[in-house]
Simulated scan of single mutants.
Amino acid sequence: MTEEKNIMETLFKKLDEKSKDLHDENGQSFIENLGLAMEDIYINQRDVLEQSTLQERRKAFQFAYLSLMKEEIIQPNHQMTPDSIGFILSYLVNLFTKNKETLNIVDIASGTGHLSATINEQNPNKTVMNHLIEVDPVLQRVSVHLANFLEVPFDVYPQDAIMPLPLEEADVVVGDLPVGYYPVDERSKEMKLGFEEGHSYSHYLLLEQAVYATRPGGFIFMIVPDSLFKGEEEVKQLQKFIATETEMQAFLNFPKNLFKTEQSRKSLLILQKKDSGKTHSVEVLLANIPDFKAQTQLQTFLSEVNEWIKENHSL
């Protein structure tokens, strides 16, 4: 165990130091230089990399990212999906698709690719094909470097995820949705969740895109504001879209202690895209996910989810 920890720490220190050295040399952002540091290890320090597991590499990247965030103020949409959220989402992806050996997964608004990396790591018995869609050029480059560093194949699509997607329909679409307003009104007006007046909600439009990117019968796992269904007219529009296009499966609130403010709290919305004659409505699973440190409560929660799956998705 100590040796494993040492390899992860060695990788973390190499990434951290190299990123800071590169920043001093080229003046680019720490995040950009973290990508270059991963590439340097991948090309020039194979001996260290080959001693490490996928989890050790991902954790080294995660700790380096969190370390570099202390060096510069980063925008909210550059925040990384926390491990605990990534793990529970990955576990549920596995549970809902347990009869599938191969998974085609789209990560919409994928950021650094850390969520995709976590899902890949937590589904070792499946062949996972990852398709990442990200508009930010810095994050696109980081996710390409991360794929090389982990030696996990990512297809990275450098585009606005709300624009038409050049993809075949996926088995699963995941996303940690950035919250805000989408500035391209011409595109919003082409979509069912676009508003008639003013800018539309980007998280609504991304949710709509996620549904379109999923094959009939496939599943959608979206990390959304826990206030998603609170509000007035816009919420009715959202609820109608979800009821028309999908069978809602679950709305699970993440533990409060993962978030700094009430406003930043998130939940996990799980939908199944309708497939005529094959999908059916279920009793929606509504629950609070226990604190991840409360192991007994967490195990009870996971057992309840397993029971729910057996009752509603007998395979």
Rank of each mutant, 00 (worst) to 15 (best):
254 F>G: 05
101 E>Y: 01
173 V>Y: 00
271 L>R: 03
135 V>T: 09
307 E>Y: 12
194 G>Q: 01
194 G>S: 01
100 K>M: 12
201 Y>L: 12
43 I>K: 13
216 P>Y: 04
104 N>D: 15
96 F>Y: 06
54 L>F: 14
116 S>I: 03
165 L>K: 02
280 H>A: 09
72 E>Q: 14
136 D>V: 10
314 S>G: 07
64 A>E: 00
312 N>T: 08
148 N>G: 14
276 S>T: 09
242 I>E: 01
198 G>C: 08
279 T>G: 05
192 K>H: 08
315 L>D: 11
165 L>Q: 09
50 E>G: 04
279 T>A: 01
2 T>W: 04
112 T>K: 00
141 R>M: 09
284 V>R: 10
285 L>M: 13
269 L>C: 03
116 S>Q: 08
139 L>Q: 07
287 A>C: 02
139 L>S: 03
124 P>W: 01
70 K>A: 12
293 K>D: 15
125 N>K: 10
162 I>H: 07
178 P>A: 13
188 S>Y: 02
57 R>T: 05
119 I>L: 14
279 T>R: 06
43 I>D: 14
186 E>L: 13
237 Q>E: 14
180 G>K: 11
313 H>T: 02
285 L>V: 00
57 R>N: 10
106 V>Q: 06
257 N>T: 03
300 T>C: 04
123 N>A: 10
177 L>S: 04
53 T>H: 14
67 S>D: 13
167 L>E: 06
47 D>N: 11
24 D>S: 13
3 E>W: 07
270 I>Q: 00
13 K>Q: 14
169 E>Y: 05
273 K>Y: 04
35 G>P: 02
232 E>A: 14
99 N>D: 13
138 V>W: 03
210 A>N: 08
275 D>S: 15
176 D>P: 00
38 M>H: 07
136 D>H: 08
224 V>F: 01
50 E>H: 12
163 M>W: 11
89 L>D: 02
272 Q>N: 09
14 K>I: 03
207 L>G: 15
40 D>E: 15
229 F>A: 06
108 I>F: 06
252 L>D: 07
7 I>T: 09
242 I>K: 03
44 N>M: 03
208 E>H: 03
161 A>P: 03
173 V>G: 02
228 L>H: 03
268 L>D: 01
78 H>V: 02
220 I>C: 12
110 S>P: 03
113 G>T: 00
276 S>V: 11
285 L>A: 12
138 V>G: 05
105 I>D: 01
145 H>E: 15
127 T>C: 08
232 E>Y: 12
160 D>T: 08
303 S>V: 10
69 M>G: 12
127 T>N: 10
261 T>L: 07
249 Q>E: 11
83 D>Q: 13
230 K>M: 13
10 T>E: 15
46 R>V: 12
206 L>Q: 04
120 N>T: 05
193 L>H: 05
181 Y>R: 09
268 L>M: 08
212 Y>I: 02
133 I>T: 01
286 L>Y: 14
222 M>I: 10
70 K>E: 14
88 I>Y: 06
176 D>E: 15
94 N>Y: 14
3 E>G: 04
276 S>Q: 14
284 V>M: 10
78 H>G: 03
